[in-house]
């Protein structure tokens, strides 16, 4: 509970930074910070396996890929971004604030008293479930990932130049 109360505001701040920072690489790095803090929250909540997987996949692959793409494309739109803000922030808030209000209202009103809950996530059990109950889903994800790998490799290949 203390970990939750400490980490939640930090996660919100980091996410706010990721959304608000005008310089793209800063946004990408703050995304990495948000995701790693979320991973720590998972660990604090007792889902150690998921927290470490979050670190490996989200921080180690997704966030790094994003900042890498930012490096390759070198966007220089900071000034543009700041100049555009007065126009874009209003409509953006108009769309998100009602959603946020609805969500928070629902959370506040309809939530039952939380039971004490279990903080036990046995890895062995996860493995067993993955290869019994969820075996079709695992197969589907495997096919998806293979397709993604081939597709991304094909997409990202330098187009062959004719001599």
């Amino acid at each position: 509970m203390t970990a939750l109360l400490i980490l939640s505001p930090l996660i919100m701040l980091a996410a706010l930074g990721a959304v608000w920072k005008a310089r793209p690489v800063h946004a990408g790095l703050l995304l990495a910070l948000t995701l790693s803090l979320a991973g720590m929250l998972y660990i604090a909540l007792g889902a150690e396996f998921l927290g470490l997987v979050q670190f490996m996949v989200y921080v180690g692959a997704v966030a790094v890929l994003i900042v890498f793409a930012l490096l390759i494309t070198r966007p220089r739109d900071e000034i543009e971004e700041i100049a555009r803000r007065p126009k874009s922030v209003g409509p953006g808030l108009l769309c998100t604030l009602p959603l946020l209000a609805t969500l928070l209202y629902t959370v506040d009103r309809t939530l039952p008293e939380a039971p004490p809950g279990t903080a036990d996530l046995p890895v062995r059990r996860i493995g067993e479930l993955l290869f019994t109950t969820h075996a079709p889903a695992v197969l589907a994800v495997a096919i998806l990932l293979t397709a993604v790998m081939l597709g991304a490799a094909l997409f990202a290949r330098e187009p062959s130049k004719k001599p």
Partner: peptide
């Protein structure tokens, strides 16, 4: 208990 996973998760931090 999840030492190996922990080790690889730290590798991600090094990249960043």
């Amino acid at each position: 208990e999840l030492g190996l996973l922990f080790f690889f998760a730290l590798g991600a931090l090094t990249e960043v």
